[in-house]
Design a binder for these strands. Structure first.
Lengths: 349, 349
DNA sequence: TTGTACGCGTTATCAG
DNA sequence: CTGATAACGCGTACAA
């Protein structure tokens, strides 16, 4: 018989002697038919092995797929292994899941340079982090809902964290005990790729391009207040927030002659600060006596080790939740700003 | 005009004065029409803002969506924040991406207890970790390709790591210097939830149910060879591989009176071992003099701190790649076993 | 090499 | 409350 082919709604209707519309209603609009009939249809359906309306056909017909795509600025490999991005994703997933939606993962750095066609099946898009090429967003269905996180797209809602005040706050905390030589380690702040010392030749990205610029502005404001001329404070830059990339830059800093080596390092991320912590320990530097360190993010790894990291905790999960709620229309799609919290650990008491 | 509605293939065909088949061929089968005509069609298409065949309609017609779903045994929140699961996912994503496929994330612990309908749009399924309820898999399209990782489904291909020999190997290494009191910390090994000491009353899961049982068998084999009766070696169990859940159990172990406290702890995961490391340091215990520790997984966090963890490195990323290649039919879908590597750090030299 | 016609499985509309 | 029918947008035999 028709044993090979999957059973369809139409087959079931014929089998039951009712119309396809009625079967469809039994699954989608209980109020459109008598409970008795509905019971019978659902019962027979599961007996005959009909699993319910086909998702592909349904999505063609209704125009919606109940799939939400997250487009990550970085590669999937990097993002999935980055605690902050992962937390964001888990916030998104939590809300989508509760609403019966699923999560499609995309990266702006796809193999072919453009998104796979299947991407356009999504009902909405959450864009996390600055896209390397703006063109990519043009390939998306024009009228699909879109929310960005940690950067802005003209005319679109976004979710942010109060980067500038947060960094002002943590720098102020650190500067209460005046350092002899403060230093700053940035993350992807220069227009030109740069792994190492930032010189006046480098052009810095603007605050609308990257959150790390906002963070730097906060640091500088606090430094200025504390009597340090910002342009006298040495800065280093790191291109990628991973140990292998951070290590040489930080090693270079720690291996400076003692009279040049910073005794306070304000870092743009916990990953950077933790790498500095590890490398400092290996060199026998005492934390915080010889070197004080601050981070940003508040990732678990920084809190579950000793010394604990002094850092700014951002609720990345909540950022994801909000983005997801906006996409689903659960909350109004308007710019949102999350507060952060200063965490004082032993790395900079 | 028809400015509100998205342009369709049919619209474009009419506009160009060719048939829909020709336009379709221009996108899908370049060999079916003259290069000149194809150029013209593609050119006009992008000029008129036609983005190519609609993914939903195409998937209905062809039956394939170019979406692969990964079903995670744990919640998405947990999995996304777990380095080992994240690495697995990034391996999957890497291969899918290169093949023009996308990744749909599902969890066996969805809100409603069953998978959302959109899940069935996937062309294939990768199941990671033992499903809490086997029924869930019955709801999947019966003939869709399916590969499991880290556990087995009858009649389906799977990807594994050589858990038993790996654990035999690391235990042997640790036991070369005989401990006075060895101990084992398991991960979700008991049928009944148990956070703490494992007693004879507990029933252990079988090796076909969980990889941690295979690991335990490896530990026991080495212990026996070293002259320790396995049932005399104390075991603890932990229900979830996170700091908050591990902490009380491990604190309980470390706070035992000195003559009962283990001086060697074989841990089922790096997360557990790292938690033990942190808690031991906080108590002033010297590693490895007072306490030696081994882990499993080889996560970055364990290698980028000091003391480095002695552990078994499993290539979780490669596990993901292989699963993805099997699903896509790039390699034969047959059971696969990956080798591991012993890493000797300072936590158990 | 190009065009015609049908069907993929569903849902919305509207008439009974 | 129920049923017939027309889309949804596309791929592909098959005919020209």
């Amino acid at each position: 018989m028709t044993h090979s082919r999957r059973m369809t709604l139409k087959d079931l209707a014929r089998e039951l002697g009712v119309s396809t519309a009625t079967v469809s209603n039994a699954f989608n609009r209980p109020d459109q038919l008598s409970p008795a009939l509905r019971e019978r249809i659902l019962g027979e359906a599961s007996r005959l092995g009909y699993r319910g309306p086909d998702a592909k056909a349904r999505s063609l017909r209704t125009g919606r797929s109940r799939i939400i795509a997250v487009i990550l600025a970085e590669s999937l490999t990097y993002s999935l292994n980055d605690p902050v991005a992962s937390e964001f994703l888990s916030g998104v997933a939590e809300v989508l899941d509760a609403q019966g939606h699923t999560l499609l993962l995309l990266s702006s750095r796809q193999a072919q340079g453009l998104l796979p066609g299947s991407a356009s099946m999504a009902d909405g898009f959450i864009v996390y982090g600055l896209m390397p090429s703006g063109d990519l967003l043009d390939t998306l269905p024009a009228q699909a809902p879109l929310v960005s996180a940690d950067f802005d797209i003209a005319g679109r809602p976004s979710v942010h964290v109060d980067d500038e005040p947060a960094c002002y706050g943590i720098a102020r905390h650190a500067l209460r005990r005046p350092p002899r030589r403060p230093g700053i380690i940035n993350l992807r702040l220069t227009a030109e790729p740069c792994n190492g010392r930032v010189t006046p030749d480098h052009t810095l990205l603007g605050p609308e391009q990257t959150i790390t610029r906002s963070r730097l502005i906060g640091f500088h404001r606090a430094l200025e207040e504390a009597g340090f001329a910002p342009d006298q404070v040495p800065m280093w830059n790191i291109e990628e927030n991973t140990f292998p990339v951070c290590e040489p830059v930080i090693a270079g800093i720690l291996d400076l002659p003692e009279e040049e080596r910073p005794d306070l390092l304000l870092c743009m991320s916990d990953r950077i600060a933790l790498t500095a912590l590890t490398l400092a320990e290996r060199r026998g530097l005492r934390i915080p006596e010889d070197l004080r360190l601050t981070g940003f993010d508040g990732i678990a790894e920084g809190q579950y080790r000793s010394p604990r990291l002094t850092t700014v905790r951002q609720d990345s999960t909540e950022k994801g939740r909000i983005a997801a709620r906006m996409i689903l229309g659960l909350v109004p799609a308007e710019p949102s700003l999350l507060a952060t919290e200063l965490i004082v650990g032993e790395s900079c008491p």
